[in-house]
């Protein structure tokens, strides 16, 4: 039997969890018991963190023809934690062109994970005049 202490990252409350690994006579893990969580998502997080930890990745990609040279992006779902740097490599290799709409898929099904990289803001095409906008 072993107990791992974790801090739940599902929401800003940050519950302190204890996850106990339950093993059978053949030393195989059969289940996990999560304590200290204050909601269901905490239990799910505790077990996932022990078996297949995942993280959201947020970053930027290069963009052409907009008022800025980078546009923020995020993974459509949390990705396996060990793929974070691989994910960054893919993201770093991309250049897109304005206009972009928030939610646009930038990279589809990357690394074969069935997860997309999507734009997390809209960006208009830069017009010649970038003076004060009066609306």
């Amino acid at each position: 039997m072993s107990v791992t202490e974790l801090i739940c990252i599902t929401c800003p409350i940050g519950c302190h969890l204890e996850v106990e690994k339950v093993i059978n006579d053949d030393n195989e893990t059969v289940s996990y018991i999560v304590r200290g969580n204050t909601c269901k998502r905490g239990e799910k997080y505790g077990i996932e963190e022990m078996t297949a930890p995942t993280r959201m990745v947020t970053s930027t990609v290069k963009v052409d023809g907009a008022h800025l040279s980078r546009i923020p992006v995020k993974t459509s779902k949390p990705i396996p934690k060990e793929s974070i740097f691989e994910c960054m490599k893919v993201i770093n290799d991309v250049k897109i062109h304005a206009p972009v709409t928030c939610g646009d898929v930038i990279i589809e099904n990357f690394l074969g994970l069935d997860i997309n990289i999507i734009a997390s803001r809209s960006m208009k095409k830069r017009t010649k005049v970038t003076e004060t906008v009066n609306v």
């Binding site: 990609v61 290069k62 770093n92 290799d93 250049k95 990279i107």
Partner: peptide, 10 residues
């Protein structure tokens, strides 16, 4: 700059 390498993506 951020993003050292770039491949054009359409």
């Amino acid at each position: 700059e951020t993003k050292a390498t770039t491949v054009e993506f359409v």
